[in-house]
Write a protein that binds this DNA or RNA. Structure first.
Lengths: 219, 219
DNA sequence: GTCTATATAATGATAGAC
DNA sequence: GTCTATCATTATATAGAC
């Protein structure tokens, strides 16, 4: 089991540096964070940061591996309490993992390979979660499973990326605020149970979208 | 009407600089873009960039105003073709606006005031769009309208931020790829019409979420 | 392992010629 | 208005003492 909640002062300097970097990268982003800031927060000299990790980019890689393993190998997403464990609910129960999630969300923001890795992870975790719920008869996925999972992962990732903006729009401060989470849960439950679109509008959309098995009627 | 599709070579240097900055900021982000890159793309000297705009930050502000006005004052989001004009569908019909949208999405990525402004714009446009559709009887929004609109805007914004990652997960290159758009439309239509959750699971979720009018039964 | 001091590179911004 | 040349700052990374 990876260690996340220890007192930073008890960690070795190398681990303290990695933790400080993960927190600062997660809060400010990679480019906005300087080695000097990391060193100050870890209580060491800037030279020691380079001594242990080689370069700022290598330090980023170390943070990537640490954060990714924590979420992927431990499958934390799936250990949520409550009936349908969403990411938001899980994070509310495990506040000590918040810096790790913030780091992964910054990876998504940054784009490139790092973002792709994290989004794939979100897809993989969504897949397991939805598949398990489906086997228990709690829900039934659309025919195009892969697309449905990609959409769910995108919704979850996007909400995390917007973060506090979404919460502020609902009069709160953070997604984990009880009132924000409740309103979010109520609305999504309603949208995903009774639906949103009228029957006639749904039919019209279906005919316009032209799924491949209806294509002969138009071309 | 603001001008977006002119040949850059015909524009005055000041407009060429602004356009080059908007494109580079949108592709690479603000921090990763240098004044020298902007000058090279605009075909002018780095000094002229500062001469016309004062500073890199002032240039960003000019791009902000330009992009925001294009989307907000012209209400482009709502002019989409098709029955339910989503952002993705609109962009497919107006490829010349793609750099402007890319810029706004980078604002969302960057966080801070710029992101808040853009997210509020997405909420405002979603509000108008959904309200109009509701008045036409095409759909019926949940009771908590504000939360529903915030969720829709977050879904749209998040999907744009993930951008190509989502498309690649579906075997495409970009969200505007016909196959990607079709699968996306089919899945979301299904999720928002027949729903996703089973009736019993919906009841269970509702009892756990405890909306305020059921609260007396637990505290 | 840890620190201080410094080399080196890049960037935003300035000054002044044309 | 436009350019070239340059300054001043900042950041990463190195070198070597302890």
């Amino acid at each position: 089991m990876l260690n996340v909640s220890s007192n930073p002062a008890d960690l070795l300097p190398q681990a303290r540096i990695r933790l400080a970097a993960l927190e600062l990268f997660g809060q400010q982003g990679f480019d906005q964070t300087t080695i000097r800031q990391i060193a100050t927060r870890a209580g060491v000299s800037p030279g020691l940061v380079i001594h242990h990790f080689g370069s700022k980019n290598d330090l980023r890689q170390a943070c990537d591996d640490y954060a990714y393993r924590l979420f992927a190998e431990e499958r934390v997403y799936l250990k949520g309490s409550g009936p349908m464990p969403t990411l938001e609910r899980f994070m509310a129960d495990h506040p000590d993992l918040q810096p790790v999630l913030a780091y992964l969300v910054q990876c998504l923001r940054g784009g490139g390979e790092g973002a792709e890795r994290v989004y794939r992870l979100f897809c993989s975790l969504s897949d397991e979660m939805l598949t398990e719920a489906e086997q228990q008869g709690l829900l039934s996925l659309p025919e195009d499973r892969q697309a449905a999972i990609a959409v769910f992962a995108a919704w979850a990732a996007g909400l995390q990326m917007l973060g506090d903006l979404f919460a502020r729009q609902l009069g709160g401060q953070h997604i984990s605020d009880p009132d924000v989470m409740r309103r979010y849960a109520v609305v999504t439950t309603e949208l995903l149970s009774r639906g949103l679109l009228s029957a006639s509008f749904t039919d019209m959309l279906r005919s316009v979208i032209e799924p491949s098995d209806h294509k002969e009627s138009n071309t």
